[in-house]
C-alpha cells in the first residue's frame, strides 16, 4: 500500500525537490545564455521572465502547470531549441536497452544461484570480475570503440534501429550493458545475494519437514523468498539505473543519464527536471511493480492448498 502510494507520488515529489536543489546551485539558464554584463540587462530580464526565473516557486509552479499537460518546455541551453519531451522520449529507449542488457547477467546470476546452476567455487570468479570499477571498465570500452571506429549505427554489420532522431550504436549499448551488469559487483552481488537468501531459508524448520516428507525444498521455499528476491531485484535495478548516468556519460550513449548530466552542467533547468521526471517515472513503475508482485505472491500463498494435518 505504502509502496504503491510512494510510486504514484514520486513523479510529483521528485521535480519539486530537484527544483529546490538546482535553485541553490550557482548559475541559471539566463546566466548561461547571457552572463551578467555581457549582453545587456534588458535581454537578461527578458530571459528571466520568459523562463519564470524570478523565484523557485514561480519556476516550479510554471513548470508543473505545464508538465501536467505533458508540456515540459523547450531546452534553452543543452540542446537549444529541442522540446524536452522529445529529448526524454528519445533517451528512455537507450537507457532501457542498456538496462535490459545489464539485467541479462544479473537475471542469469539470480536464477543460476537459486537453481544451483553455478557451483560455489565460481563465486570467487564472479567477485573477481566485480572488483573492476565500472568507470575503468567503461573507459577501456570507450577507448576501444572510438579508436577502432566501432561506435557507428551499423558497426560489425549489426543492423540496428535508426528512426527519426533515435539512433543507437550496438557496440556502445552492448558495452554499456556489460559494464553495468558485471562491474562494481553487480553480477557477484546477484549471485551471493540470492544464494544467501536461499541458504537462510533452507535452514528453516519447515524445509527440514518438507525434506522428510519427500518434497523439494525449492518448491516450499520459493513462495516465501520471492518477496525478498523481488525487493532485492528492485534495488539492483535502481542501482543499475544510477549507474547508467556514469556509463552513458563515458560511453556517449544518448540516454537519460547522459541527458541529466549534461543539463546539470549547463544549468538547463527544463531538461534537468524532464530527465529527473523520467527517472522518477521508472522508479515509481518499479515500486508499483514490487507492490503488485507482493500482493500476487501473498494471494498465491493464501490460495495454495492447505497442508493436511
Amino acid at each position: 500500500m505504502v509502496r504503491g502510494a510512494a510510486g504514484i507520488l514520486l513523479p510529483l515529489i521528485v521535480p519539486a525537490i530537484i527544483a529546490m536543489i538546482i535553485w541553490g546551485l550557482p548559475g541559471d539558464p539566463a546566466t548561461t545564455i547571457c552572463p551578467q554584463g555581457t549582453c545587456g540587462e534588458t535581454a537578461r530580464q527578458a530571459l528571466i521572465e520568459r523562463y519564470s526565473l524570478t523565484s523557485p516557486y514561480a519556476f516550479l509552479y510554471s513548470w508543473l502547470s505545464r508538465a501536467i499537460f505533458l508540456d515540459f518546455g523547450i531546452s534553452p541551453v543543452t540542446i537549444a531549441g529541442k522540446e524536452v519531451w522529445a529529448l526524454v522520449a528519445t533517451s528512455v529507449p537507450n537507457t532501457a536497452l542498456v538496462m535490459l542488457l545489464a539485467l541479462g547477467p544479473i537475471t542469469v546470476g539470480t536464477f543460476g544461484a537459486a537453481l544451483g546452476w553455478f557451483p560455489r567455487q565460481l563465486d570467487a570468479v564472479f567477485q573477481g570480475i566485480g572488483v573492476v570499477p565500472a568507470v575503468i571498465f567503461a573507459l577501456f570500452c570507450v577507448a576501444f570503440i572510438t579508436i577502432f571506429d566501432l561506435g557507428g549505427i551499423g558497426a560489425f554489420g549489426i543492423p540496428m534501429f535508426e528512426y527519426d532522431n533515435w539512433e543507437v550504436s550496438p557496440m556502445k549499448l552492448l558495452a554499456g550493458g556489460l559494464v553495468l551488469g558485471l562491474a562494481d559487483g553487480a553480477l557477484s552481488g546477484a549471485v551471493s545475494g540470492t544464494r544467501s537468501v536461499f541458504d537462510t531459508e533452507f535452514k528453516q524448520r519447515y524445509i527440514g519437514i518438507a525434506i522428510l516428507r519427500g518434497e523439494r525444498p525449492m518448491v516450499n521455499a520459493a513462495p516465501n523468498v520471492l518477496p525478498t528476491l523481488i525487493g532485492q531485484f528492485r534495488s539492483r535495478v535502481l542501482h543499475l539505473l544510477s549507474g547508467t548516468v556514469i556509463i552513458e556519460v563515458i560511453l556517449g550513449i544518448e540516454g537519460l543519464g547522459d541527458l541529466l548530466w549534461r543539463a546539470t552542467l549547463d544549468n538547463d533547468y527544463f531538461v534537468v527536471l524532464g530527465a529527473a521526471w523520467g527517472f522518477a517515472l521508472i522508479s515509481s513503475f518499479l515500486l508499483i511493480f514490487q507492490a503488485i508482485s507482493g500482493v500476487v505472491v501473498e494471494l498465491m500463498i493464501r490460495r495454495s492448498p492447505s497442508v493436511p494435518t
Binding site: 531546452s75 534553452p76 540542446i79 537549444a80 531549441g81 532522431n165 547522459d258
Partner: peptide, 21 residues
C-alpha cells in the same frame, strides 16, 4: 535562443546543418 532554428538552421552557406545530441 530556444527557437527551433537553433537546431535546424537555414543559411546561404555551402552546407546546411542539423544538430543532434
Amino acid at each position: 535562443p530556444d527557437d527551433d532554428f537553433a537546431l535546424r538552421p537555414i543559411g546561404t552557406g555551402p552546407v546546411k546543418g542539423s544538430k543532434g545530441r
